[in-house]
């Protein structure tokens, strides 16, 4: 997508999450709507990490949040471990929320500055009324993210560095023993050396707790490093889904190629670049393929017909008329 279709969905298997035809729209007045996510399909096998890659405004964060029902999507279905989440509310949703946890971009602003680390980590337990072994579970969670419980337990967020705050956020998520972790740009506000620590930590946590992850980010190298499969979004539509192994060589969609050529140090002087710099408005997205206004190879057909996701290799699906 910048077309549509669900050819990349896998049958059977032990699926933790499956999302069908997810649509997220926000009213912006005068009867107009921002089309943040338009008909997204994705599935996640136990223990798998799906990377969602795209630039600002591509709908990657909206998609991650819609899975969490924060806020619920405009339409579509989100099934977590066999439970349909869209349309369910109240107690059922609250129960499901413990099974999926969100790690956000800015760790400092996502922690309440007035509360102590131990209470921040225990918040989920308190909400669920799980009082048993509260302290032991909090300590175990802190230890599992590489923090010394005796040192940090009584600190407040401002006494910690950005990297340590992100560790607290991860501990907060892990203490509830979730099945699914949704990470929305978890390292983009951190320094390079700290970013490496947090990425390693997420990998370890995933292995130890048997987690599945949706990893939303704009940095190709970071996404490739943590993911098994990568989904590329543009203006709310899927461009390409492919295994992260060999991604930089196999990627076929013109938009994925543009992202790869823009990675510093990877600049390719021969690349055709792009046509116009401006991202079209998500209020009134282009007809046909949404990427066509920036695509150097766009043809008349691209404006008329929306490309469907097609398999071009094992586990590799592309929505582009021009990719063989």
């Amino acid at each position: 997508m910048a077309g549509s279709g669900n050819a990349h969905m896998r049958a059977g298997a032990d699926r933790v999450l499956s999302v069908h035809d997810l649509v997220v729209e926000f009213p912006v007045g005068r009867g107009q709507r921002v089309h943040a996510v338009s008909g997204l399909h994705l599935d996640l096998v136990r223990g798998e990490t799906l990377g969602i890659l795209g630039e600002s405004g591509c709908g990657k964060s909206s998609a991650g949040r819609a899975v969490m029902q924060l806020p619920p999507p405009t339409s579509g279905s989100v099934v977590l471990e066999g439970t349909e989440l869209t349309g369910s509310g109240g107690r059922a949703l609250r129960r499901a929320r413990a099974r999926m946890q969100l790690i956000m971009q800015d760790p400092v602003s996502s922690l309440n500055p007035r509360r102590r680390v131990a209470d921040l980590v225990a918040e989920g337990l308190d909400i669920r009324g799980e009082r048993e072994d509260r302290r032991a579970r909090v300590d175990a969670a802190l230890r599992s993210v590489g923090l010394d419980p005796d040192t940090v337990r009584d600190r407040r967020p401002h006494e910690l560095s950005g990297g340590q705050c992100q560790r607290v956020c991860i501990a907060r998520a892990l203490v509830l023993d979730p099945a699914l972790l949704i990470c929305d740009e978890p390292v983009s506000s951190l320094d390079v050396s700290v970013q490496a620590q947090i990425l390693n930590l997420l990998e370890e946590a995933k292995e130890r707790h048997g987690l599945s992850m949706v990893f939303v980010a704009h940095d190709v190298a970071v996404v490739k490093n943590v993911s098994d499969r990568v989904m590329v979004l543009y203006l709310g539509k899927t461009c390409e889904v492919l295994p992260s192994e060999g991604l930089h060589v196999r990627a076929a969609h013109p938009y994925t190629r543009l992202l790869l050529d823009s990675v510093p140090g990877q600049e390719n002087g021969d690349a055709p670049g792009e046509r116009a710099a401006e991202l079209p408005s998500p209020v009134d997205p282009p007809s046909g393929c949404r990427f066509r206004t920036r695509c150097p190879w766009a043809q008349e057909r691209c404006a008329r017909e929306e490309p469907q996701l097609r398999e071009v290799g094992p586990g590799h699906h592309v929505a582009c008329h021009l990719v063989e």
Partner: peptide
Amino acid sequence: GALLASAPRLSAAPHSRLPTIEGR
């Protein structure tokens, strides 16, 4: 050297552990 090594590389295999700089 450590700063260069800690950035993920496109050419590296997925799930490779990144060398880190310990401490603050």
